[in-house]
């Protein structure tokens, strides 16, 4: 084969694999996850949660619309990350409802919780990459666990996801998490979260501990993903600048209660004393 014919064969093979992957993932989506419905993707209604005598969330009501990016702001210990745990079904509220795709995640059987989770991707604060696995295995983990895709199809998908977060697959696929910088770890974490094309992406402090340039890169990625994979997102952060840059709406938590929900512009214009203090 000449180099030209090799290229042709390569591009043809890539097209075929892409079609196969789309078909398999479409089938997977139909089997594993509930179909995309109407109304908000996530809805919290009068949610209360306490650990012993410590109140974490006190009557929180919040909704995430389809295609929207909502940032949840607040100081340390305000209960921001707890909201993500509730949405994932990792914690249960003492009272109130947490609805994902219209289903109360705290009152559905485990099989349905698992099915709902298959529509979600989670980006952890410290990326939470599996130490003993390479970047390739980390990003392809979900596909290896839950699909019957061939290794070639998984590799194609992993490369695509790494490309989506502006990483060069050839350079990083064989590396272990310990060999990556903080920013690269976050990007690999995002690639892992989007590899199965979730409808809901949850970010837990995606820019914490990063320098300003890497922070901007991560924020750009969040914006890029909104456009490219049409995902609804909740970003938990204490970084006001990042929240304003990436979000359609922001919510502010103070001691377990929501003190503000609205657009970034509305937040800047509000007269609420705590909000103004927080922005300062």
């Amino acid at each position: 084969m000449t180099p030209d014919s090799l290229d042709l064969w390569d591009s043809q093979m890539r097209r075929e694999i892409r079609a196969e992957v789309r078909k398999a993932l479409a089938n997977l989506g139909q089997e594993a996850a509930p179909p995309e419905g109407e109304g908000p993707v996530v809805e919290l209604e009068d949610v209360c949660l306490s650990y012993g005598e410590h109140t974490v969330l006190d009557g929180v009501s919040l909704a995430l619309q389809r295609g929207e990016t909502l940032s949840v702001l607040g100081g340390s210990g305000a209960g921001k990350s707890t909201i993500l745990r509730l949405i994932l079904g990792l914690s249960l509220p003492d009272s109130g409802e947490v609805r994902v795709e219209g289903k109360d995640i705290s009152h559905v059987p485990l099989t349905q919780v698992l099915a709902l989770r298959r529509n979600m991707g989670m980006v952890f604060q410290e990326a939470a990459l599996f130490d003993s696995l390479t970047v390739y295995d980390n990003v392809g983990f979900y596909l290896h666990e839950h699909t019957h895709l061939s290794e070639g199809e998984i590799e194609f998908r992993v490369r695509e996801s790494l490309g989506l977060v502006d990483l060069e697959p050839e350079q990083v696929m064989g590396l272990l998490p310990a060999e990556l910088s903080g920013g690269m770890k976050k990007r690999v974490g995002i690639a892992r979260a989007v590899v199965h094309r979730p409808r809901l992406l949850l970010y837990d402090e995606p820019t914490s501990g990063l320098d300003p340039i890497t922070t901007r890169t991560i924020n750009d990625l969040i914006l890029k993903l909104q456009g490219e994979i049409e995902v609804s997102s909740i970003v938990v952060t204490h970084d006001i600048r990042s929240a304003f840059r990436t979000s359609n709406r922001v919510a502010l938590l103070f001691e377990g209660s929501l003190v503000f929900v609205g657009s970034p512009e509305e937040m800047v214009a509000t007269e609420d004393e705590y909000v103004r203090e927080f922005l300062r």
Binding site: L88, R117, F124, A128
Partner: peptide, 10 residues
């Protein structure tokens, strides 16, 4: 949080 990551991936 690697165990939480496992759980979130069902």
């Amino acid at each position: 949080e690697q165990i939480d990551a496992l759980t979130t991936m069902s």
